[in-house]
């Protein structure tokens, strides 16, 4: 890798945009065909990976794009999951309604808590988000009338994607529902990445004072992306409930936040699919290796080892996502001359 290769992404994109589509088409085809080849458990794992990928994308919006390292996205994931579970049990089994409700409530909670968090930067922001995550977790444990405490909420009916469609009982069908929602949200984030809004967020990451000096109300931008990332995490939480048909405080817990951050960091290069690849790697490591006899019950050890290994061996994977305003280049897709 040449030292400045990361900066040539735009050039590379122009030169080989057709060639670059090939892997994307192959991944899409693979995702579409997976349920016909894989067993039920593997398909469930794939669904969970897609959900975690959405959560990692949400982390990446803050950490990679805006430079605000967060450990609190599990909070909004959990809020979305509980919202969807309550809507599913009390109101309707229509998936779209659950998704929208989860995204809306999570966006609301994220905006309210973000109002405090975006006052801070750097480590203080990280600490605040960690604390927010922990507080939502303890609310999930203690607010028993709403969440049923540590027992969690079960008895969630199978999801009906759109009104009039049949309830999805089979893992393979749920997977297609998750995949469809995933693709829609992925496209939305991809669109966002090319807008002036995303450029402004990169500007905040690089040099917030300068952004103010050219007239940007930076805190409003930070709060907006925080709320949006919260909505995305909330939607992921709703999908999680459709897959698991169960929700417990652990789904709003620290481990989920750490997994999502790790996925975003490993995928890191700032490209959107990077976070998804990171999510796949993290979840497969946890799920499959964790089930091996040797490491039976030591999932956490494995995860920790993965964290440590990632930091030392993937510095380039980390560079694009780093918080400090170093001189190394970025890799969030940059829009080049088109005029």
């Amino acid at each position: 890798m040449s030292p400045n290769s990361g900066t040539d992404i735009g050039t590379a994109a122009r030169a080989g945009s057709a060639a670059r589509r090939v892997p994307a088409v192959m991944v899409l085809a693979g995702l579409a065909l997976a349920p016909f080849v894989l067993g039920s458990y593997a398909v469930g794992t794939l669904s969970r990976i897609l959900v975690l990928a959405l959560l990692a994308m949400s982390v990446n919006l803050l950490t990679g794009l805006t430079g605000l390292a967060t450990l609190g996205q599990s909070a909004y994931f959990g809020v979305g999951a509980y919202t969807a579970a309550i809507v599913a049990r009390k109101l309707t089994d229509v998936g779209v309604v659950q998704l929208l409700a989860a995204a809306a409530v999570s966006a609301l909670v994220a905006t309210a808590t973000g109002w405090l968090a975006v006052r801070a930067r750097g480590v203080v922001f990280l600490m605040l988000t960690l604390a927010i995550g922990e507080i939502v977790y303890s609310a999930a444990v203690n607010w028993k009338s709403l969440t049923n405490g540590t027992d969690g909420m079960s008895g969630i009916p199978p999801v009906v994607p759109l009104p009039g469609m049949p309830a999805l009982e089979l893992d393979g069908l749920v997977y297609f529902y998750v995949l469809a929602v995933f693709l829609v949200l992925f496209a939305m984030v991809a669109h966002l990445a090319g807008t002036p809004f995303a450029l402004a967020l990169r500007g905040i990451r690089d040099n917030e004072d300068r952004m103010r000096a050219i007239g940007y109300p930076t805190r409003r931008y930070a709060l907006t992306v925080y709320g949006g990332a919260g909505a995305l995490a909330g939607a992921a939480g709703a999908l999680w409930v459709s897959v698991q048909r169960f929700v417990s405080p652990g789904d709003a817990g620290f481990e989920i936040a750490a997994l999502a951050l790790l996925a975003a960091v490993i995928g890191g290069s700032g490209r959107i699919w990077g976070a998804c690849a990171g999510a796949a790697l993290v979840w497969l490591t946890r799920d499959y290796l964790g089930n091996l006899e040797v490491v039976d019950g030591h999932g956490k050890l494995l995860l920790g080892a993965l964290f440590v290994t990632a930091v030392y061996t993937l510095p380039r994977g980390l560079t694009g996502i780093r918080v400090p305003r170093g001189l190394r280049s970025v890799a969030w897709p940059s829009r080049k001359r088109t005029a």
Partner: peptide
């Protein structure tokens, strides 16, 4: 930077 330290110490 802090993010790498956070990931390492979390691990």
């Amino acid at each position: 930077g802090h993010l790498d330290q956070a990931v390492l110490t979390l691990g």
